[in-house]
Structures are given as C-alpha cells and as structure tokens.
C-alpha cells in the first residue's frame, strides 16, 4: 500500500481530538498540564497553541472538579473531553464518574444528554508502582450508563477516540501507557469505529484468545509462537469493553471450541470472569475445555522491575495458558 501513513498511538489520539475540535466548536478539553505542556504523555501536544487556552484548559489538580466540569458542561450542551492523567486517579473522581456522569440521564427520566469523554492512561510496565499502574476497567464496566474503550493500536485509537467524542453518552477512553509510542497505519481523514464493535485481529481455527489493549499485542506474539507448533489462534480484540461485542466472541468460540481471556488487570473480579461467563452461557455445548482466564495475581502492582515483570502477563504466560487449554482435549 503506497500511501500507508504511519502514526504513533499517542498521535492518533491527538489527531482525533484535533479533527473533532475543528469539526465542532462545542468540543473542548480540560485537564492537568494539558495546555502549554501538552499533557504528561504528550497526548494533547500542540492543541492549546492551535485552539487557544479557552478550548484547551489547564486545570488545577482537582480530579473531582475536572470530571464535574465535564458533567456540567455536557449536560448544558457542550462536548467536553476531560483528562485524568493516570487511571489510578479515577478513584479521586469516582463520585462524579459513577454517581453523576453515569446516572444523570437515567435519574432524570432520560431527559438529559451527556456527550462527555473522560480520557485517561492505564496499565503497568513502567515501574510506576501501585498507584500509577493499575488497570481498573472492570470497575467502570460495572457501571450502567458508562461506555468504556481500550484500544490496542493506533488505527483503533483514532477511530475509537473519534467515536467517543461524537458519542452522546459518557465514555471513558483508556490509553495504555506502554502503547503510546506504537506506530501503525492511520488514515489522515477522520473516521470512527462504532463503539461496541470488536475486531478479529488474527483469524484462526483452534483457539479463541480474547485480549485487549496491550495484551492484544502480547497475544499476537503468542499466536506466532504457537503457530510453530501447529496451534492456530484466533485473536478477538473487543476494543470496546462496555458495551461488549459478545456476538463476535461467541461466534469465534463456536468455531474454535476453545477460549482464553487475557487482561493485565487482576484476575479476580476482572473482565475475564464476565467474558468467560458469557461464553459458557451462550456456547457451552461448543466448548472442549473450560474457558481460561489470564490476568495479574491478586496483589497491588509491585514497584521493583524484578517483581513487576513477573506480575504482568505477557506472551509467554499466554503461550503457556493456551498450551494448558489445548492439552485438556
């Protein structure tokens, strides 16, 4: 493909925001250090210079008020993008996210529209320790009223971020910190990927791997490794976790008869449990082995690289998990 323009994951986010800000004067951004500094991960780089300080707002360190600003501005007709620097900080703003943003519409009898996008950065692998490395998506997916997306590559990032901004419900866009520099094909023109539509990242016939964000990439590596042994993996990246593309997952499992769900979050109470449960409810008769969940052990994220490298699942953990599943047959 001659005109395959490549862009980094972080710039795909940036381009989606820029194009939507150009398209709709009601779109604005607010967050800590996102203005002159462009955000600590560079996600908002250049936007204040382009759109001015009224549309790209540096806020105080006030997570609750940042999300509240978004809720109030959204319900009165603007289309806010509010940034929480690290996913761990959603905990500081949980009332506004869980009790306000997610519920206003319903509590008002449907009579409110909240086109709010909350952006944040999750995941470990930077020795950033227990309060800067978490994957808390399950917490958000549990809340009726929120939509949650976790892109695994630059193309999906741009399309999903565009969809989030255009969406008329509160969405949480979770960037993965270890994917920020990942490059890949990203069209220049604006496009959106429907929320709730998963993607077959790799077609295969022997086992279905459901994996998202950084783990989708680890699954791709694992699949190449397993291919050498003749195990053909199909990788489903749901991309959006709430709503979840159950149909895509189930139809894959009906074909492969095996399923492994992988996430970086702690295994207990993680999304893997929900996905495994849906698979057994909808495809029980097709399964040749129990659905396996791969995730982090039940501890906070440790600081030392010597521990963290064993804590976060990777392609090797996935390879082992799949060998175990296939060995049961």
């Amino acid at each position: 493909m001659a005109d395959e323009r490549k862009l980094a994951y972080v710039m795909a986010f940036n381009e989606a925001v820029k194009q939507q800000m150009e398209a709709d004067p009601n779109v604005f951004c607010a967050g800590e250090d996102i203005g002159a500094f462009g955000g600590v991960f560079g996600t908002f780089g250049g936007l204040q210079a382009k759109f001015g300080a009224d549309r790209v707002v540096d806020t105080p360190i006030s997570e609750q008020a940042i999300v509240g600003l978004g809720v109030g501005a959204a319900v009165t007709g603007l289309r806010p993008i509010v940034d929480l620097m690290f996913m761990d900080f959603i905990c500081v703003a949980l009332d506004q996210i869980v009790n306000q943003a997610a519920k206003l519409k319903y509590m008002f009898g449907g009579d409110a529209v909240l086109p709010l996008t909350i952006t944040t950065a999750g995941g470990g692998g930077l020795s950033a320790a227990a309060q800067h490395s978490q994957s808390l998506e399950a917490l958000l997916c549990h809340i009726p009223g929120l939509k949650v997306v976790m892109p695994s590559n630059p193309y999906d990032m741009k399309g999903l971020m565009t969809a989030c901004i255009q969406e008329n419900n509160p969405t949480v866009m979770i960037k993965h910190k270890r994917l920020l520099g990942m490059t890949g094909h990203v069209p220049e023109e604006s496009y959106s990927i429907p929320l709730g539509k998963g993607n077959i990242l790799r077609p295969g016939k022997d086992v279905t791997i459901v994996a998202y964000a950084r783990m989708a990439n680890e699954a791709l590596i694992a699949a190449e490794e397993l291919a050498k042994d003749g195990i053909d993996c199909e990788i489903i990246d749901p991309r959006t976790l709430q709503p979840l593309d159950t149909d895509l997952i189930v139809s894959s499992v009906k074909k492969t008869n095996h399923a492994v769900v992988v996430h970086e979050a702690v295994r207990f109470g993680g999304l893997g449990g929900e996905i495994a449960s849906q698979i057994q409810e909808l495809a029980f008769d097709y399964l040749d082995a129990p659905v396996t969940r791969i995730g982090a052990p039940f501890s906070p994220v440790p600081f030392s690289p010597a521990l963290e490298q064993h804590y976060i699942p990777d392609s090797k953990t996935i390879v082992q998990g799949i060998r175990d599943v296939m060995a049961r047959v």
Binding site: Q131, H132, F303, P305
Partner: peptide, 30 residues
C-alpha cells in the same frame, strides 16, 4: 527496587516509608 529496601522493593521512590520513624509514606496521589 531491591529486597533490602524500606518497602522490600514493593513501593519505590513514591511510596518510601518507615512507620517506626513515624513516617507514614510518600504518596503517589496528590
């Protein structure tokens, strides 16, 4: 990030602490 550290390598710079000295921890959450 060594085992002999104040937090046995679990906390690092941002969570350094010594409860015996009454130091209840550096903190990653502003």
């Amino acid at each position: 990030g060594k085992a002999t550290g104040y937090c046995k390598g679990k906390g690092g710079s941002m969570h350094i602490s010594d409860t015996s000295l009454g130091m209840l921890g550096a903190n990653g959450i502003v």
